[in-house]
Structure formats: structure tokens, C-alpha cells
Amino acid sequence: MESEKSPKKEIFPTIPLIILVTGILWLINELKIFTIDIPWFPIVLIIVGVAGLIEFYKRK
């Protein structure tokens, strides 16, 4: 007898993507290839993280 699996929603990997982009930007900045001077960048990451948490708890 085959067990039926419930359809799983595809979830976009937001957190890994943010970490990847942050790491790439940090590396580029450290290697002095391209200087990125965005003092509010951590605030953007915090806002994106909070929005992700809110969306996660709204779905429940």
C-alpha cells in the first residue's frame, strides 16, 4: 500500500539568500574591490528578518 504524502509548499530560501548576499558584499568590501559604505545595512537586515517572522506566524 502506497502512503500518500501531503503536498508540500515550496518555500523560498530567504534566510540563506540574505546570508549569502551579506557574505559576498562583506568579502567584496574587505578585498577593497568595491567599497560599500551603507551604515543602515544592518537595519535593513533586521527589518527583513522581522517581516519574515511576522509572515511565518501569520501563516499559522
Rank of each mutant, 00 (worst) to 15 (best):
M1V: 14
M1L: 06
S3N: 13
E4L: 15
K5W: 02
K5Q: 13
K5V: 12
K8D: 12
K8T: 08
P13T: 03
P13K: 08
I15N: 06
I15Y: 14
I15C: 11
P16W: 04
L17R: 06
L17M: 02
I18R: 03
I18K: 03
L20H: 15
L20D: 15
L20A: 15
V21Q: 15
V21E: 15
V21I: 10
T22P: 00
T22E: 11
G23T: 01
G23K: 04
I24A: 08
I24F: 03
I24S: 05
I24R: 02
I24K: 00
W26K: 08
W26G: 02
N29A: 01
N29G: 01
K32A: 05
K32D: 12
I33C: 11
I33E: 10
I33F: 11
T35G: 05
D37F: 06
D37A: 08
I38L: 09
P39F: 03
P39V: 00
W40E: 14
W40P: 00
P42W: 03
P42N: 03
I43W: 13
I47K: 03
V48D: 06
G49H: 08
G49V: 05
G49A: 14
G49M: 13
G49W: 15
V50M: 03
A51P: 00
A51S: 07
G52L: 13
L53W: 07
L53D: 13
I54W: 09
E55F: 06
Y57F: 11
K58A: 13
K60D: 15
K60C: 01
K60S: 07
K60N: 14
K60P: 00
